[in-house]
């Protein structure tokens, strides 16, 4: 399941330019972060991957088929996309039905739906809430329900828009465990995030956008060590990187563990 984006440009109907001559390739099983300042085009970019938006110029190829020829309903089998706010999607009266919504739309068999729902409930620690009304639950449970509903679609590519927003560290650890499991299943994970600490610690490759253009694509470390690049993206270096710099360490640490081992050296 390779995603190829070839020289796409996109402007909104009001004329504002959102993406400009952007190209990239994401291979099967990669774990990629997309970052950039507010309004840099991150969400616009991922909306192209499942056909919610079609480029004005250029092509988006998902598994060698052009999104211009596909409906979002069909592309959802290949690419599942989770939006930021869980309340923009919750439409069923139990957590279980909410998670089953996607798989049902994709026309899976009943047994497969049940299995996928049970697995997702367990993955996101929602089993005890499965018969609750999502609106009776707190924000964290609703967010996890929304994430579970995307994972249950069993699509080979999963995109999460700001998954860590509003979650505490235990819930973020839960999310990371889910990512690990998805990676073992060779699924592609794309995460849009402002959370530089989260990216530094957990992602391999990062794509950085500024004003609708790709200005960086490579290992996370290269981005966070380059101050001028960070300034151009409007990003702040992760705390561990800043700390390593103020301690004048030979290289920048991306995680607390790395920092400790560098200090011990």
């Amino acid at each position: 399941m390779t995603i190829r984006i070839k020289n796409i440009s996109f402007s909104y109907p009001d004329g504002s330019r959102a993406l400009h001559n952007l190209s990239l390739t994401i291979e099967t099983g990669e774990c990629v972060a997309i970052t950039g300042h507010n309004g840099s085009g991150k969400t616009t970019l991922v909306k192209h991957l499942n056909g919610l938006l079609k480029p004005d110029n250029g092509d988006v190829l998902v598994n060698d088929s052009n999104t211009k020829a596909c409906k979002t309903g069909q592309l959802a089998r290949q690419v599942a996309l989770l939006f930021q706010n869980p309340d923009d999607q919750i439409c069923k009266q139990t957590v279980r039905d909410e998670i089953a919504f996607g798989p049902k739309n994709l026309g899976f068999e009943k047994d497969k739906i049940n299995l996928l729902v049970e697995v997702s409930l367990a993955l996101f620690d929602l089993v005890q809430y499965k018969n609750h009304n999502p609106h009776d639950l707190g924000y964290s449970e609703r967010k996890r329900t929304a994430m579970a509903s995307i994972v249950a679609m069993d699509s080979p590519v999963l995109i999460f828009d700001e998954p860590t927003a509003g979650l505490d560290h235990l819930e973020i650890e839960l999310l990371l465990k889910v990512f690990e499991k998805l990676q073992r299943e060779n699924k592609t994970i794309i995460v849009i995030s402002h959370d530089v600490d989260f990216i530094a610690e957990n992602m391999d490759r990062t794509i950085t956008l500024a004003n609708g253009e790709k200005i960086f694509d490579g290992p996370v470390r290269n981005l966070f060590q380059d101050d001028s690049l960070l300034a151009r993206c409007g990003l702040l270096a992760p705390q561990m990187v800043q700390l390593s710099k103020s301690c004048k360490l030979p290289s920048a640490a991306l995680s607390p563990q790395e920092f400790i081992s560098l200090v011990q050296d």
Binding site: D88, F101, N105
Partner: peptide, 11 residues
């Protein structure tokens, strides 16, 4: 946004 979120889930 809601329309996008639900279409992304195969609606």
């Amino acid at each position: 946004t809601i329309q996008n979120a639900q279409r992304a889930r195969g609606l």
